[in-house]
Write a protein that binds this DNA or RNA. Structure first.
Length: 463
DNA sequence: TGAAATGTTGGGGCG
DNA sequence: ACGCCCCAACATTTC
């Protein structure tokens, strides 16, 4: 199949390992493409090592998605005469072992940007180099890597519009790479685990709603993108705010797992699409990665240090009512139930439920972020962190704290006929019991504004 | 990618 | 015709 290697080069063409992480795709995969173009054999590998992600190992909904995405990737590789090798971490030991078993001389991967993942990659790269292996890393996940986008004074952007302007000026995403024509297998496949043996699926099968809502995998990602670009994007600006309407792209979990990359989305949009409101959403994702890279503590700590002394009120009862969609506020409960049932929530509603938790209920935003982390199929540390800090008012270019959403007003504006609320809170119509509101919207709003003013009056605490 | 309070304007009813 | 009041509709400001 493959053309003969140029004379003289065969000697230093050996096997290359491609370490799949959050880039579970064959198309436009720079690490895979590089390995396939330069090596005599390609060894695709996925290493299950959740402990490497520190406090942010994949949550339950993410593990569900990962299970099916790994199956899809393995199937795609098998169609091309290859396969996905699945092993248990730690990554460095696993890669050394597989390199020894296959005679691989280099390891290729696409970069990750989460603090723990970067630390892990540094350690792995250093260890592989000590073992005499070559390491090549690529950008598969972003239009512009964080280190490449700095302002005039060489500092990271903290304002979205400035970052957007910079990105639009400088981003020049290369044409997406094709699937490598040839993925020659190694002489012998090392022993692999099965996806099932990773036990990513829940023991109690609560995942029916997820399965009815989603199809993980690269093929599904492209179907979703094509449908969005051919039809929904025309009305995106208006429809994206209506939770009862399928107005958004629904690409978020596919992007998180790298079943599709932003370069592919960019090129699929065309010139008109690149001027659209939708592209700005894609750039918010870039901005989130940019911020997490430059401010790695923000996954758990507020970017604006004065918020360290915000008078949060931990309330297990309030948190629990919020988590389970029993606050007595219809739009909030609808959103939380959509999340629990499908692993996803419409973004307009995410803002509303988050505002209620961190402002009306004064529960720390980290509690909300943690719940989303476990329940969202698109849970993504950079995006989750940016969005929670945005709502809480403690992040970069965040909504001012006093911007408190009124969930009743929001429902009137964005779910005027109540279709979304009725779908997820049917007992409002059926006459079954629905909880009384656990809070008074007006009083709790005033309490939140007072808390904010007290924080600002209190002296001290520098960055 | 707010909400609520406050301010302004203009039409209509009425004495 | 006029002033006065009410109030909706919109704009501005404050939180």
């Amino acid at each position: 199949m493959s053309p003969p290697a140029p004379a003289g080069s065969a000697a230093h063409r050996a096997a290359a390992i491609v370490w799949f992480q959050q880039d579970l795709r064959l198309r436009d995969n720079p690490a895979l493409h590089a390995a396939a173009s330069s090596a005599r054999a390609v060894v695709p590998i996925y290493i299950w090592a959740p402990e490497q992600d520190g406090d942010w190992a994949p949550g339950a909904a993410s593990r569900w998605w990962l299970h099916y995405s790994l199956q899809a990737l393995d199937a795609g590789l098998r169609e091309r005469g290859s396969r996905l090798l699945i092993v248990r971490g730690p990554p460095l030991q696993a890669l050394r072992r597989v390199a020894a078993q296959t005679g691989a001389t280099e390891v290729c991967w696409n970069n990750r940007y989460e603090p723990a993942a970067r630390e892990c990659a540094r350690t792995v790269a250093a260890g592989l180099l000590r073992s005499g292996l070559e390491v090549r890393t690529f950008n598969g996940a972003l239009l512009v890597e964080p280190a490449e986008a700095l302002n005039e004074s060489g500092k990271p952007y903290r304002v979205y519009t400035a970052f957007l302007r910079k990105l639009l000026r400088f981003a020049n995403p290369s044409t997406p790479l094709p699937i490598p024509r040839d993925l020659p297998p190694p002489g012998q496949w090392p022993k692999s685990r099965t996806v099932d043996s990773l036990r990513l699926l829940p023991k109690i099968r609560w995942d029916e709603g997820l399965a009815n809502s989603w199809t993980p995998g690269e093929a599904s990602a492209h179907r979703t993108l094509r449908r969005f670009v051919s039809t929904r994007i025309a009305d995106y600006r208006r429809a994206r705010d209506m939770p009862a309407v399928r107005g958004t792209s629904a690409l978020s979990p596919h992007l998180h797992f790298g079943e599709i990359g932003p370069r592919q989305v960019w090129h699929a949009l065309g010139a008109k699409g690149r001027a659209s409101v939708f592209l700005r959403e894609l750039v918010w994702r870039e901005f989130a990665y940019h911020l997490l890279h430059h401010f790695p503590h923000t996954a758990t700590e507020p970017l604006r240090p004065e918020f360290k002394r915000f008078p949060w009120k931990r309330s297990a009862a309030a948190l629990r009512a919020w988590q389970h969609g029993r606050t007595g506020i219809p739009l909030v409960d609808a959103g939380m139930r959509q999340l629990w049932s499908t692993g996803w929530m419409h973004n307009r509603v995410r803002m509303v439920v988050a505002s209620l938790l961190v402002k009306n209920l004064l529960v720390p935003w980290q509690e909300g972020a943690r719940w989303f982390w476990d329940t969202l199929v698109d849970a993504d540390l950079a995006n989750n962190t940016l969005n929670w800090q945005w709502v809480a008012g403690c992040g970069a270019d965040a909504a001012p704290y006093f911007r408190v959403f009124n969930p009743l007003t929001q429902a009137e504006r964005f779910d005027p006929d109540g279709a979304y609320v009725r779908r997820w809170v049917p007992e409002l119509e059926s006459g079954n019991s629905y909880p009384e509101p656990i809070l008074d919207l007006k009083a709790s709003r005033e309490r939140a504004l007072d808390a904010y003013h007290n924080m600002r009056r209190t002296p001290g605490l520098k960055a």
